[in-house]
Nucleic acid binder design. Sequence first.
DNA 1: TAGCTCACAATACAAACGTATAGAGTGCTG
DNA 2: CAGCACTCTATACGTTTGTATTGTGAGCTA
Lengths: 208, 208
Amino acid sequence: MRPISEEDLTARARIRDAAMALFAERGVKAATIRGIAEAAGVSPGLVQHHFGTKEELRQACDEYVLSYVREQVAVGITGHNLGDPEYIENVHRSAPPLMHYLGRALVDGSPGAAAMFDELVNVTEQHLSSDDRSEADHRARATVLTAMKLGITVLHDHVSRALGTDLYGPQGALRVGKAQLDLIQPEFLGRELFEQARTGLEKLEGNR
Amino acid sequence: MRPISEEDLTARARIRDAAMALFAERGVKAATIRGIAEAAGVSPGLVQHHFGTKEELRQACDEYVLSYVREQVAVGITGHNLGDPEYIENVHRSAPPLMHYLGRALVDGSPGAAAMFDELVNVTEQHLSSDDRSEADHRARATVLTAMKLGITVLHDHVSRALGTDLYGPQGALRVGKAQLDLIQPEFLGRELFEQARTGLEKLEGNR
DNA sequence: TAGCTCACAATACAAACGTATAGAGTGCTG
DNA sequence: CAGCACTCTATACGTTTGTATTGTGAGCTA
């Protein structure tokens, strides 16, 4: 399946994609309707025709990203496809711009991104609690684990620069993924996820 | 030593503090000169009298934070004072607004914050390399470690909300600090730092 | 005391921005 | 073919923003 080229999309989709890219790059306040319109190849008026106000455009971006992430989590984790090369390939092609936006939304006060953060903390906490029934502070551990994981996304520009490779490129994702597995105590990642992630990374490595 | 109250500071210092708070809260672009002036209790004209342009004001904030962090790192880590209660108390009183600004600067494209990120990655990498002379990817590990650590600062609003406690309050800092020590493989923190951090946290816990 | 410097305020202005409004072009439907 | 609905552009308007300019008063100095 070929990647969908930007020109083949409807104007509405191009505007949404351009908005996500510019919101992510400069922040919601610094990105302008005129800039988004130009990037999408349309007039500023069309942006408001399709999305109303800037705030509504931002909400549309939020919903698009959140539904994407929830879908990929469902397919990948719940559906046990983390090791599937097609799944990995698909995610690596479509995810970067969405992750870029998500990282910005988290620091830009997006209610949707905050809800997703809380959601991730909750599932992680349940996960930790079911594995370890001691009276440890699972809430704090889940929170820190979530923040550390998303922190890499939020700081992806700095990570890419320090690595000398794009975090979302094949080599960057591999190195960062392996480093995460090395650094974090395996018991907190969950046996199953740990194994799937490791074999997935190894397959990815074998293909290069 | 009493905390210095905001009213006793010079107008220039009040402007800088207000700018750091508003830049941190809303981002550089969304924070306005007029808003900063009002928060500092001065006229907008005085802001430009002391700092010139908005960009120069931002640079002044950058330099202030970076020199503070470098100083505290020198006193705390290089000077082996991480376990000193007075040091801890002092940091916990003065650091929060500065950390808040640093977190924002990292995602707002501040050159100074980027330089500090690289600096931290470099010292961490040297640290890892001297402890473990294998051919492991120390650069990636150092980068990820740095990003995860700073990620908690960048996402501190979400962390505080998920925890139900302010990250920079006594309980929040304690819980997050302990969770970090639990989650990360001790060998990557360095024996010495690990011990100092643990005893420091225990002392802090004893005082509550 | 005349004059200079500096901290500070008030006003003015041009640019950029979000958005409201009006209209052009196209395709579908009765 | 008349008319409606929809996509898209162009223009205009009011607000906000950064910053330039000007003015004012206090303190220091010769």
